[in-house]
Design a protein around this nucleic acid. Structure first.
Lengths: 263, 263
DNA sequence: ACCGTAGACTCTACGGTGTAGAGTTATAAA
DNA sequence: TTTATAACTCTACACCGTAGAGTCTACGGT
């Protein structure tokens, strides 16, 4: 349930000094009270500052120089905590994935609850992502450049836990993998969809005008133009819930169907 | 079936000189045969060159300067065909979406075929994206910054056509929208998943080693480590097909269920 | 033949970026 | 006191997007 994280110090060597989850420090003056030397940074502090920067102003606003400025350190100091900017971005996705709590992942639960567990996990992931919408592109892009086994454990934990839930539900190894892919694929796809729902001009009264739909030639886009009202009262939460229901039904059918077991 | 595209010339004014789909020119010497002055570029030529650059070396390799060099033009010349780099990226997503052919979008088809049509469309989208994997981040990120009505028609056409298919299938306006979202959400999610499947070291014999799974502590990742073999023989096409089947069944159920019609 | 105009492009420059390499300082250990 | 090391800073380089002004060519009008 709670992130169980690893090294926090400099990046080149796992210093193994456990300072807490993603590191504390960085605000209290250390032992000697000169006031001249600040307490050293930590990977956790750097990542958290980076996330704040991204949340506030988007991904492009995250530059080494700006982050250095925000932490009151020379930009080059950051390279002690992330090998380069890409590694920093990877750290952000890890920071996020590591917060994804998947219910019922511990042993000893009733196996029938797997559908509720997956449903809950989906909603948690959604609210997590909505708190940090700017990192979605990272979620989509970054892992692509890192092969499975080399990704940080924090980023793999959700996958492992989902596989555990599915296995307890009765899926075989390959079945669990297929089920995971269908589930996570739908989940991430939904979030991309949801984040793309937008309004041009909230002050405008008429639905079509708010979306800018009046610019579209009616003869080319009859269906779209007719949907102005429906496009506006989008409810991401129930939309996700209904979609997840479809997926879960499909998975249940596979469980009940033939040739399960070793498949 | 075939992209029907609009202006192609300079960006500030829709020159309305129709030179063909996304523009020709850019290789044949124009009327006067001095050999001194090259024929002018075109938006289409610029976008195509940009796509080639991205396909070859990834998104980060697409800089105005590199693109200018490739087209043998000063980088600033490109600003005649795209207002800035972001607009260039938007042009790339349009270039791609515009190629997505959705079968049966023309009127007069048998309405029962909608499931096959959506299935086919999904497979076409997949092969399109696999030809240009580097643009997936754009597909995910770019529309986010452009409200629906302001997106270029080429990027909205697939949406319109999918809505047409769903409407002919019997969905009401809101139902069609929900169905579209479930369908496209799953589709894009699957592709993200599929693109993240990777091998570390193809020369390695043993499955776990090829994925780098041996680095993971066995006590923390029992399920993942057990899946080495299954992770390796991933077949994106049938995976997509099975997932789409689930979604289509779910949608069919909604069609058969109560309260369809005006909903 | 001359001029004016407009399109397509180039030149220069500014402020920003990631990061290599070497240098600095403060603390802890010997 | 000396030495080692961790944490950090300084300087510099090559690249980036793009604003602003200038150039060069083709063409239409007179």
């Amino acid at each position: 349930m709670v992130p169980a994280n690893q090294h926090d110090g400099p990046v080149h060597r796992g210093g193994s000094v456990h300072r807490g989850i993603f590191g504390a420090a960085a605000s209290d003056p250390k032992s000697s009270g000169g006031g001249k030397r600040r307490s050293p940074l930590s990977r956790g502090a750097v990542l958290r500052a980076a996330l704040e920067l991204v949340d506030a102003d988007g991904l492009e606003a995250l530059s080494m120089r700006r982050l250095g400025h925000r932490l009151d350190r020379d930009p080059m100091a950051l390279y002690r905590y992330a090998a380069n900017r890409d590694a920093l971005l990877d750290g952000l996705t890890e920071l996020l994935l590591d917060q994804w709590a998947i219910p019922g992942a511990a042993d000893g639960d009733v196996p029938e609850a797997w559908q509720d567990q997956l449903r809950q996990a989906a909603h948690r992931f959604r609210s997590l992502v909505l708190q940090h919408p700017h990192i979605v592109p990272l979620l989509v892009t970054r892992p692509l450049s890192t092969p499975l086994g080399l990704r940080p454990p924090g980023a793999l934990r959700p996958l492992e836990q989902l596989l555990a839930v599915l296995t307890r539900a009765g899926f075989g190894p390959s079945g669990a993998l297929h089920a995971y892919r269908a589930y996570y694929g739908f989940l991430i796809g939904h979030l991309i969809n949801e984040l793309e729902e937008f309004v041009v001009n909230p002050d405008e009264d008429e639905a079509g005008l708010r979306l800018g739909l009046h610019r579209l030639p009616p003869e080319d886009f009859p269906h779209l133009r007719r949907l102005a009202a429906q496009l506006l009262d989008y409810d991401g939460e129930t939309e996700l819930d209904q979609g997840i229901t479809i997926v879960l039904h499909g998975l249940q059918a596979q469980l009940d169907g033939p040739a399960q077991r070793s498949q």
